[in-house]
Design a protein around this nucleic acid. Structure first.
Length: 703
DNA sequence: TTAGGGTTAG
């Protein structure tokens, strides 16, 4: 109440009623600090300009408040003259320098804050930094990723005797945490005689940022034991560490106990926590219960649906949000894009609609959004559109390049992927993900020499240490070429423990080049490392079947059942006139079913005449050969394709999406279908794209 | 005047 009346009194003075003296700078500064809206702040700003145009204190106070109220641009315009020409600043006044440095940092001008700090250091015989100077400067270093500079600033603080100040120390822990110098952060933390909640939170944050969630949680419990009361920031830092429902429930209870559950920022985080634990319905309940939803609430829920592969729900929620007049930002659209690119229930039309929204929301300059748009076109099957956007894009970064490279890889265009990678490496240093992109592109396209060259260059040229995912790509590459022994030898020589992705590649290779011994070797490791993945059991069983080891195949299926695992239900979605139609195996739910099955019979006869031989290894077990053959005909892939063929004009491309890997027999059949019908068929499966045309598939029969 | 924290592209 007192503060409001201060603002009102000064505002009254500002209105320049005759005979009212102009407000004093001190009163004006107090009113600025007390104002809670831009509406209050603007007349105070006008009064400052009118009555005290050269008062730098007032400019700094105004700037700080503009930043606080969400107008960093105005803040910067206020600080810019002094920042551009520090000679305007009185050389003996550290307080003022501090205000300006902090003002710049708060307004997001971290580089200029750092520059001003350097000027302050250069002042000889004038003002010197004090303990208030360092926190914003260290924060600016952390934001800019200028860790070497941060270490120098740390040296300055130590030289001037401020490095043990608790505020400075907390900033240092945060800096080293972000700079991947966890040991230094921990040492600084351990050395502190007195720690407050910020110290603990900064150290917990350092663990989280360096990928040590268990240590972060342990430190949190130690903090509780030492009776330090956690606050909002502590919980927000800790929430990303939670991966199990039990942990989520425990943390939720603690948040309630600390009376923080009514803050929207905390509610959003709790919602995200439950969705990451797979509790999407619970997350939705929490979302519905948020009384004052902010933009992050909507974006988080959309993102949660996207992560759970529930694109329809994500898109529906996005529509509802717009209907309520909530304006989406880049984060909202990234959620929608993510949902669209992952889902089998999204179409190329969806990709185009979302791209239109990106343009309408003026987000074409946002590199993250544009990268997601490119990825979306790649995954919705339109590589050419993806490339067009990529070529026109300014500010392409490592992620953008990797997206385009892996896009070519997914579509089997290995040569273009390698060319793009070679172009990229002239511009920037590839990281571990860009190597995964190019190596998987080589493996999808069978580019063995190029693959080896890239793999070897990781360490020799770029100092990137290969991880399990790179070895998995190489095993895939060797396996594709039928070099199973070499692949096994390669795994034996790995300097790190092979993980499920590596053994999965070896097992996958055995599907194309059946070898019971090597398949068993891979499967035995997989059943230990990834025992709940039913796909592995199915794969091994199919390999046994193709080798004629029917009993072994049965044994593996039985083992799978015994372990309580079920085969994921396969389905195929076909896109037709901007609509999606889903088919399960033997599906008769479509109104055109009679027509579909009649046409299917006819088509199967046609492709048989063209040389197609059904591969009953991929059919059901325990049935007669003829029944097996018939059961192959009703696979979801074939039903979806036939539905597409009878409902589109001859020049239309058929676009289908299978949620699992395409069945081997359906793959062969589709090649023949493309030949006898002269139709182009683009099929996305869980691994890659297959472009069928004139009896050939872009994958070269390896996937 | 000062510290820690939230949805976000490969």
């Amino acid at each position: 109440m007192f503060l409001r009346s201060t603002v009102r009194r000064v505002l009254h003075q500002c209105c320049s009623i005759p005979d009212t003296p102009p407000p004093e700078p001190r009163a004006l500064a107090e009113a600025i600090r007390s104002s809670t809206s831009l509406r209050d702040l603007k007349p105070l700003h006008a009064a400052a300009l009118r009555h005290h145009p050269d008062d730098l204190f007032l400019s700094a106070a105004l700037a700080s408040h503009y930043s606080l109220l969400g107008s960093p641009r105005v803040a910067l315009s206020l600080l810019s003259p002094a920042a551009a020409d520090p000679s305007l600043l009185p050389t003996g006044d550290t307080f003022l320098w501090n205000l300006l440095i902090r003002g710049l940092a708060d307004a997001g001008a971290h580089d200029r804050a750092l520059l001003l700090y350097r000027r302050l250091r250069e002042l000889r015989g004038g003002a010197q930094p004090d303990k208030f100077t360092f926190p914003p400067v260290l924060k600016a270093c952390a934001h800019l990723g200028e860790f070497e500079e941060g270490v120098k600033v740390h040296g300055d603080a130590a030289e001037l005797g401020f490095d043990s100040d608790v505020f400075v120390r907390n900033s240092l822990i945060a800096l080293y945490g972000k700079g991947r110098a966890l040991d230094t952060a921990r040492r600084l933390f351990d050395e502190m005689p007195e720690r407050n909640v910020v110290t603990w939170t900064a150290m917990i944050g350092a663990f989280v940022q360096n990928g040590h969630p268990k240590e972060a949680l342990a430190l949190f419990h130690q903090m509780l034991q030492e009776r330090v009361r956690p606050n909002r920031a502590t919980f927000l830092t800790l929430i990303p560490c939670v991966v199990s429902c039990d942990e989520a429930d425990n943390l939720h209870k603690l948040i309630v106990r600390h009376r923080l559950e009514s803050e929207v920022i905390v509610q959003n985080a709790i919602m995200g926590m439950y969705s990451r634990c797979g509790k999407i319905e619970h997350a939705r309940k929490l979302f519905d219960g948020i009384a004052k939803k902010d933009l992050a609430s909507w974006s988080s829920m959309i993102e949660a649906y996207a992560r759970a592969d529930l694109f329809e729900e994500a898109f529906k929620l996005f529509g509802k949000m717009k209907l309520l007049g909530v304006v989406p930002d880049h984060v909202t659209l990234l959620g929608v894009l993510r949902g669209c690119s992952n889902s089998a229930l999204a179409s190329l039309k969806h990709a185009q609609v979302i791209h239109g929204l990106v343009i309408r929301c003026s987000l074409v300059e946002n590199i993250m959004v544009q990268t997601a748009v490119i990825d979306n076109y790649v995954k919705r099957g339109s590589l050419s559109t993806a490339r067009r956007i990529f070529d026109r894009l300014h500010g392409r970064n490592l992620v953008t390049w990797s997206t385009m490279i892996s896009g070519y890889g997914m579509h089997g265009r290995g040569q273009e992927a390698v060319e793009l990678f070679n172009h990229m490496k002239c511009l920037m240093k590839p990281d571990h993900v860009s190597f995964v992109s190019v190596l998987s592109a080589c493996s999808h396209a069978g580019l063995i020499d190029e693959g080896w060259q890239c793999f070897n260059s990781m360490t020799t040229e770029f100092g990137v240490v290969p991880g399990a995912e790179h070895y998995a790509c190489m095993v895939d590459l060797l396996g594709r070429a039928g070099q199973l022994e070499e692949a096994r030898e390669f795994i034996n020589k790995m300097p790190i423990n092979p993980d499920a992705s590596v053994w999965g590649s070896l097992l996958g290779a055995c599907r194309i080049h059946p070898d019971a011994k090597i398949a068993e070797l891979a499967a035995n490791s997989l059943f230990e490392l990834d025992c709940e993945n039913s796909g592995r059991y199915i794969l091994l069983s199919n390999i046994y079947t193709s080798l004629g080891k029917i009993e072994e195949a049965h044994r593996i299926r039985a083992l799978m059942r015994q372990r309580g695992l079920k085969k994921t239900a396969g389905y195929t979605v076909v896109e037709l006139n901007n609509k999606l139609y889903k088919f399960l195996v033997g599906d008769r739910s479509n109104p055109q079913s009679d027509l579909i099955y009649t046409e299917l019979d006819r088509l199967m006869d046609r492709i048989k005449q063209a040389g197609y031989v059904p591969n009953t290894n991929f059919s059901l077990h325990d049935v007669e050969e003829e029944t097996k053959e018939k059961s192959l005909y009703v696979h979801s892939e074939k039903l979806a394709i036939v539905f597409g063929l009878i409902n589109t004009r001859p020049e239309c491309i058929i676009r289908v999406h299978k949620n699992l890997r395409v069945c081997g027999d359906c793959h062969t059949a589709t090649k023949f279908i493309s030949k006898v019908t002269r139709r182009k068929i683009i099929m996305r499966d869980s691994h890659r794209f297959h472009h069928f045309s004139e009896g050939v598939c872009s994958c070269g029969d390896y996937w």
